[in-house]
Amino acid sequence: MSAVQILSAIVIGLASDHAWSMAAGLLSTGKVTVAAVVDDGDHLRARACDTFGPVPAYRCLAQVPDDARFDVALVCSDNRAKAEVVPWCVARGSHVYMDKPLAATGTGAQAVAEAVARSADAGTRVMVAFHTVFDGVHDEARQLVADGALGRVYLARGVAGHGGLREGGVSDDFVDWLVDPARGGGGTFIDQACYLLDTFMDQLGDTIVEVDGTAVNLGERDYLPASVEDVSLATLRFAGGAVGVVDTKWHQVGPSPLRLSYHGTGGTLIDVGGRWELHTAAGVVPPLDWQRTTERDGVVSYTRATPPKDGYAGEAGYFVDRVLSGEPFHPALTVSAALRVQRVIDAFYASVRTGTRVAVAG
C-alpha cells in the first residue's frame, strides 16, 4: 500500500472566522499539514501556533522566505487583500482554497483571474468555496433545469439572511473588516448574495446581464457604518430572458437558511430549507431520491430531503482530492464563475450609487 501524500499548507488571513473551520477541514483529511501562517494580528498568530503547533508565523507576505514553497494555500484574508494574496500564492506554485468572494471589487477579481490564467501552464488551480455548491441537491437541481422539468425558466428568486454580525457571534476581528467598505467591498449583498448569484448562474446555465439594486442601512447597529447596507434587494435580468430577485439582510428574526426557487412555463422547483419540491407538467421524472407525492391536473409533485452536508470537512476533502487527482473543480467553484459573480456585485453597487439599472460588465 502506497503512503498517503501529505500536502504542506500555508494559511493566509486569520481574522475571518471561516479560516479556523476551513483549516480544521483541511487537517481532518489526514492529507494536509499546516506549515506556516500569515496575519498581522499578534493574538491571531499566537492562536494559530496554539492550534496548529509551533509553525512559522509571519506578519505579512514579505516576511515569508523567497524559497519557501507550499503545496496548497488557504486564503481567508479580507476581500481587498485577496487581489494581492492569491496572485502571490499561484506565482509560488500553490493550489488555492479560498473563501468567497474572489475580491472586494471587479477590478481586484480581474487581477486574480489574470494571475490564475498566467499560472495555468504550471497546473496551479484555485477553488473559490461557494459553500452552497456542496448542497447534495445542487447538481440534481441543475440537471432538472437542463432536462426541461421546468420548461422555460422565467423567474429565479433567492433569499438569504441572518440576525446580525455581532449579534450572531461573529468575532471582532472578522467584523472589523466585514464592515469596512474598502476591505470588505460592501455589506450584506457582497457577503450573502454571492452564494445565490453563483447558484443561479450555474443551475440555470445562464449569465446575469443587468442589475437594479437597492441597499438600506436600518441604522440600528452602532458598529455598522452608514455607508454599509444591512438590507439589500436586487432585481436581475438574465441573458436568456429570465428575471431574478435576490434579497439579503443582517436583520433576520428567526431561521435564516438560504432559500431559492425557480419558476418556469412547465414547472416549479423550490428549496424550502431542508427540503426541495418539484412540481412539473413537463413529464420529466427526477432521480430516485425524489419521492412522488401527488398528481393533479397534469402536474406531478415530488419532494426530496436535502441530505446532510459534511461541512467544512467535506468541502476541504473535495479540494484536497481534486488537487491530488488533477481532476477539475466543479464549474461553480472556479475563478471564472467567481469573476462572473463579482461583476454582478459591482453592477449592484453601481446601481445603488446611481439609482439606475446597470449592465453587468462582459
Rank of each mutant, 00 (worst) to 15 (best):
G283T: 11
V96W: 06
T356N: 12
D147V: 11
P54Y: 13
A68N: 05
T105Y: 06
E220K: 11
L155C: 14
S232T: 03
R343Y: 10
A337T: 12
W177I: 00
V228L: 01
A350D: 10
S2Q: 15
P56M: 02
L197H: 04
H95C: 11
L74P: 01
A24W: 05
G158N: 01
L233S: 10
S2M: 14
Q342P: 06
A103E: 01
Q342W: 03
A3E: 14
T235M: 03
A81H: 06
F319K: 05
G266Y: 11
V38H: 01
S2T: 15
R292V: 00
G185Q: 02
T214R: 14
A156Q: 06
A313I: 10
L324G: 11
R296D: 14
R47A: 12
D147R: 13
A113M: 10
G108V: 00
H162W: 01
A19T: 04
I190F: 04
I345M: 11
E229N: 05
V231S: 09
H279N: 14
M98L: 14
V352R: 06
R343N: 13
A57F: 01
L236N: 09
G244E: 02
H279Q: 13
D50V: 15
G244Q: 07
V245C: 14
D99Q: 13
G317M: 08
L324P: 03
G169H: 06
R69I: 03
L288K: 12
A359N: 05
L102I: 08
V90M: 00
L7S: 00
V231R: 08
T248A: 07
V137Y: 06
G311M: 02
A242W: 00
A146V: 03
L278N: 08
A46L: 14
A146Y: 07
K100A: 09
A141W: 02
S171F: 07
E84T: 09
T107C: 12
T248D: 04
G123H: 10
R353L: 03
T207L: 10
G244Y: 03
A193S: 08
C49W: 11
F130K: 04
A149L: 08
A122F: 08
T207G: 07
H95L: 01
